[in-house]
Amino acid sequence: MQRLLEIYQHREMLINLVAKELRARYKGSFFGFMWTFFNPLFMLIIYTVVFSYFMRIQVENYSMFLFVALLPWNFFQTSMTMGVSSIVTNSNLVKKIYFPREVLPLSVVLSNLVNYVLSLAVLLPALLFFKIELSFNILWFPLVLFFQFLFVYGIVLIVSALNVYFRDLEHITGIVMMAWFFLTPVLYPLKMVPAKVSGLIYLNPMTPFVELYRNIFFYGKQPGLIDLKIVLLVGFLFFFVGEIVFARLQRDFAEEI
């Protein structure tokens, strides 16, 4: 609890780091911040062309079906691959100045969260363009996003702290994320999975998130109550476990880095 208070006291640093993260990504490029919108836009265009002309899939509006799930997946994946090394790459800060070390992974997760939210500016017009009706169920979005944020932040806390002690984790994370992607129903609908293994897929905490996002954006349905309960639990569980693990491991950061 005290740690959370301290993070709050360092909010100015957090804001500056997130802004730095967002600006540094596009520094020196001609279109600058516009890339935040170009990236998802071109991703969508490419997927649409590929899946409507080259590889036809028997799912209606497949490119949007995919896109709705791919954006939150990218939020997760980029947070993980960038976040895992967030402590190690800032060793000059960690060794020289005191601040709650959570600020480093948190700034990575928050900057990716901002990117995800901004990509809605591409997603929503695209949904309309493909004649997918938007419903009031979109109002569930902030809640689902909040739980996903807790989950992503918690797991990034764990991997970023462990990475100080086992540097291999950076490389392992890349591989695990690739496998994890295919174990999450992003490319395919959940009902396509044989009943035998679908239980396995439901052990994956990203599955209910993807299902929820798809319900509220793509199908315009109410989010499933069970899914909501699971993500609430998953969110807070990872958040607390992450904070506890991190608090224990961070004491030796300055020595181990």
């Binding site: 006291q9 360092h10 100015e12 640093m13 804001i15 500056n16 780091l17 601040f99």
Partner: peptide
Amino acid sequence: IYLNASIFQMGR
């Protein structure tokens, strides 16, 4: 200056 000062908990 903004970035560094905020590490020392100075407000904007």
